[in-house]
Structures are given as structure tokens and as C-alpha cells.
Design a protein around this nucleic acid. Structure first.
Lengths: 108, 108
DNA sequence: CGTATTGCTACGATAATTGTAGCAACGGAG
DNA sequence: CTCCGTTGCTACAATTATCGTAGCAATACG
């Protein structure tokens, strides 16, 4: 019972409120979503290079996430191959950069 | 079953590199993790209030996430009941606050 | 005692993810 | 053209994760 997106409305699993933050948290909360954005932060990667960067995750999920992230407008498939961040995606990725330093301090 | 943390080492699914950012991305990439942190951003909530805030998500997963987030030191169970963010958790949550405005602009 | 909370768990059903293998399309040698 | 190697992408069974419902023990109040 995959939740269908009602015409024009961005309806993501687990977020029936319509609040965009919920849709975003849900999208980013799926496995490998955050990781994909992270791995693409510097430069575009081919699907296989991305898979290698993502600890050889299953191509099934990666393709699913890439499709979702493309639909969301965060990732694009460049002409000539290779996945890269869109301007919007780069902007989103910037939001997560402080996470890097935080993680270093966390670690404990 | 749930991957056990080898003595002293923080080993999280999908992150065998040992880089803390990977462990963090993996932890936050599990379902409801981000949402839980988000819902606790203002004030502590009881387990049931949190469940209500999280769209009546299954208590099984919520308990699992809460345990993980507690082990990570982001969430704590206050004396007298109620889950709240730790100082570290509040700090992590601050990192995600820009996400709110980003989500508003996203939406499209 | 009854009633209502709290945090938390059991367990079958369902959905998501994994792992392996492979496809069609394109391009560059040879 | 043929042979390679790459690209993005898919099939499909097996394994996990999550859902949904019900309920437990503990605590508190009357």
C-alpha cells in the first residue's frame, strides 16, 4: 500500500500533515538518502562509483533513492552520465555540513 | 538482529569505515530518527505523546529509535517520565533548524 | 479496591532492503 | 563490424525492518 501522491500534492510516506518539513524529514529518513547526498557533495559520481562510495549498497535501493532525490530536485543525471547535485541539492547539502564537525565531536 | 556495538567501538549498520559522520548519517537515516529529534525540539514528550506527534508510528520502532538515540546520547528519559533532548541532542537539533526554512522554499 | 497513567514488549502481517545476476545502450579500440 | 568495457538500470528470491494491534508491569490517585 505504497502511498500514492495525490494529483499535484507532494505526499510522502509518514507525512500526512502536508507540512513540507515532514516530507523532507521523511525523504531524508530513508536508507541511503543522506549518505547519497553526502557522497555527492564534492563532485558527481557515476552510478557505480556512487555504489562503491556507499559501501556497495544494493543497486535496487540506490536507484530507488536516486529516483526519489531526482524527483525532489536535489539530484540530476548529467548528460553523458554521472549523478550530481542540483543547485537546490547543493544548498541542502550545505545544511548538513555542520553535521561533519558535530560528528567529530560526538563520536565519544 | 540489531547489530551489537563491539566493545567500545561504535559500529552502526552501513558504516564500517569508522568515520563518525557515517555512523551519524546512518543513525539519522533510520526511520523516525529525524522525526523524533524534530518533535522533541521544543519540549520533552511522553512516549505516548511522542507517538501521537509521530503520526501514530508503531511503538516497536519508536522504542527502538529511542533506545538508539539514548545510546547515542541525544535523548534521555527524564526522571518522572518523558523523553527529552540532552544538551548534545539539542545541539544536533540546532543543526537541522535551517532545514525548516529550506523545506518551505522547497515544496514546489 | 478500581482506574488511569507511564515506559515498554510480543507477535503475526506487511513493506522495505539486500545480494546476486544480468539486461540494453553507448563508445572506443582493434 | 566485432570485441570490450563502461554506463544506467532492472528482476527476483531471501532477508530485515517496520507496522498494527494488543497487552504487560509499574506507578499514582482516589
Amino acid at each position: 500500500m505504497a502511498k500514492q501522491a495525490a494529483s499535484g500534492t507532494r505526499t510522502v510516506r509518514g507525512s500526512r500533515t502536508g507540512r513540507p518539513i515532514m516530507a523532507l524529514l521523511d525523504l531524508l529518513g530513508r536508507r541511503w538518502s543522506l549518505r547519497i547526498l553526502w557522497e555527492l557533495r564534492d563532485a558527481p559520481l557515476t552510478s557505480r562509483a556512487l555504489r562503491a562510495a556507499c559501501d556497495e549498497a544494493s543497486p535496487t535501493v540506490l536507484q530507488a533513492r536516486l529516483t526519489e532525490l531526482r524527483d525532489a530536485g536535489f539530484v540530476e543525471l548529467g548528460d553523458g552520465g554521472g549523478y550530481g547535485l542540483t543547485a537546490l541539492g547543493r544548498e541542502l547539502c550545505e545544511t548538513f555540513m555542520p553535521l561533519h564537525r558535530f560528528a567529530e565531536r560526538w563520536q565519544k
